[in-house]
């Protein structure tokens, strides 16, 4: 189980980082989401992996640690809110700049150049 679990975390994190490095907002949002899935699974495993155990010391020989579960729950809630925000911000970026590049424009036509032209036109 440990090996599969570790491979899943690794795959999620690797694809998350790969997508984050794309310079368009949609892949970046997807990358953030995958990265946070990987991180949540990792945080969950910090209490050791065990199945069918109670989170109470002394009731059985082995127990599952309840604290990482609480931490993951908090992290999921926060991550969800942040993702919602970054989606809205990406849409705003798309609407403002007519481009979903994270810099607002592809490098060859820098944003500042466009704005200066607009100012001089007026």
């Amino acid at each position: 189980m440990e090996l599969v679990y570790a491979l899943v975390i690794g795959a999620l994190t690797a694809s998350g980082v790969y997508l984050l490095l794309r310079a368009r907002t949609f892949p970046v949002v997807m990358g953030l989401t995958l990265l946070s899935y990987g991180v949540n699974l990792f945080l969950f495993s910090s209490g050791r992996l065990s199945t069918g155990q109670q989170p109470i010391i002394g009731s059985t020989t082995a127990y599952s640690d309840p604290l990482p579960q609480a931490l993951v729950l908090t992290a999921i809630v926060i991550g969800f809110a942040m993702t919602a925000f970054v989606v809205v911000l990406s849409l705003r970026n798309l609407a403002d700049n007519n481009d979903d590049h994270v810099d607002g424009a592809r490098p060859e036509s820098a944003t500042r150049g466009k704005q200066d032209e607009e100012v001089s036109d007026k």
């Binding site: 907002t25 990265l35 990792f42 970026n93």
Partner: peptide, 22 residues
């Protein structure tokens, strides 16, 4: 918009690293 987006994305990555280290 653009500096805001950079700020948000960078800090979200920072939060992920924080959680990993925790």
């Amino acid at each position: 918009t653009v500096p805001g987006l950079h700020y948000v994305v960078l800090n979200l990555i920072g939060s992920s690293i924080f959680l990993i280290s925790v």
